[in-house]
């Protein structure tokens, strides 16, 4: 009898956990809803997964698609950007982000980069921060293996080859370290945000009374350079700087 009581109380404690659908199940249901055209329901389900403090670039990509289908382009762009933060080279996210951008109002021409800056940015954007991290680990192991071969080989030719290989690994590792540093500062150290309201007015200083400088519309991207109270100082890709209310922006 006592045993039964224990069992029941245990079940009572565990039942909320049992009832809570697993994230995989939620994603399966959300994908199904998306396929059936129930986009708002799909959004709800995807968001519930994110509420469980879980994420993946596929999840953000799918959520962005669902928002796009509901014509919420600001939210769609935000989620594509989040997907690209986790996997910068994801082709589908890049494509859909471009499509979503064509539906927005603002066209902000970024300040052009010098060619080597562009090359470098293209290079380090090939992998995410974690991708580069794993790359470094892999290169380190390769380097150590080559060093081992260098030490243990008996003939001169083998030693030469092993030394050359280890040198290549070492150089590649240094480059990867630089790339991970650049990618880390590009994605995590700075804060980019997407405009989530149909239109947001940028002021010259944080205060309602200050003069309006420019207007940005839903879906536009801005970098947050500073904050004060309920205001963010933002810098657009074209170099314009202004103060926008916090509620109008959502950090990627």
């Amino acid at each position: 009898m006592k045993k039964l009581v224990w069992w029941l109380s245990g079940l009572l404690f565990l039942s909320p956990l049992l009832l809570k659908a697993s994230p995989e199940e939620l994603i399966r249901q959300a994908n199904e809803a998306y396929v059936n055209g129930q986009y708002s329901y799909a959004i709800e389900l995807y968001e519930s997964v994110i509420e469980q403090e879980l994420e993946s670039h596929e999840l953000y990509y799918n959520l962005g698609n669902a928002y796009f289908k509901e014509n919420l382009f600001g939210a769609a762009i935000l989620n594509y950007e989040r997907a690209l933060k986790l996997k910068p080279s994801d082709e589908n996210s890049l494509f859909n982000l471009e499509v979503a951008r064509t539906r927005t109002i603002d066209r902000i021409n970024p300040v052009p980069l010098i060619f080597y800056e562009r090359w470098w940015k293209n290079f380090y954007s090939k992998l995410s921060v974690d991708g580069w991290s794993w790359m470094i680990i892999f290169l380190l192991l390769g380097f150590l293996a080559a060093m081992g071969a260098f030490f243990f080989s008996r003939t001169r030719g083998m030693k030469k080859t092993a030394f050359g290989v280890s040198l290549i690994f070492a150089v590649a590792m240094v480059v990867s370290l630089a790339a991970v540093r650049a990618q880390y500062s590009n994605t995590y150290k700075r804060k980019d945000a997407i405009v989530m309201v149909p239109r947001a007015t940028a002021k010259s200083s944080p205060g309602e009374a200050s003069p309006d400088l420019f207007v940005i519309h839903e879906g536009s991207k801005a970098r947050i350079t500073s904050e004060l109270g309920e205001w963010y100082e933002v810098r657009l890709a074209n170099g314009n700087v202004g103060w926008v209310k916090k509620y109008a922006l959502e950090v990627i």
């Binding site: 994230p23 995989e24 994603i27 399966r28 994908n31 998306y34 396929v35 997964v49 994110i50 403090e53 879980l54 994420e55 993946s56 596929e58 999840l59 990509y61 799918n62 698609n65 669902a66 796009f68 289908k69 589908n92 494509f95 859909n96 499509v99 979503a100 064509t102 921060v129 974690d130 580069w132 991290s133 794993w134 991970v180 880390y184 995590y188």
Partner: peptide, 21 residues
Amino acid sequence: SDIRFINNTIFYLQPKGSLFF
């Protein structure tokens, strides 16, 4: 012009904000 279809597979989820680096 339309967006591409969703990733209709069960994918791996990681804790939010977790960074290997």
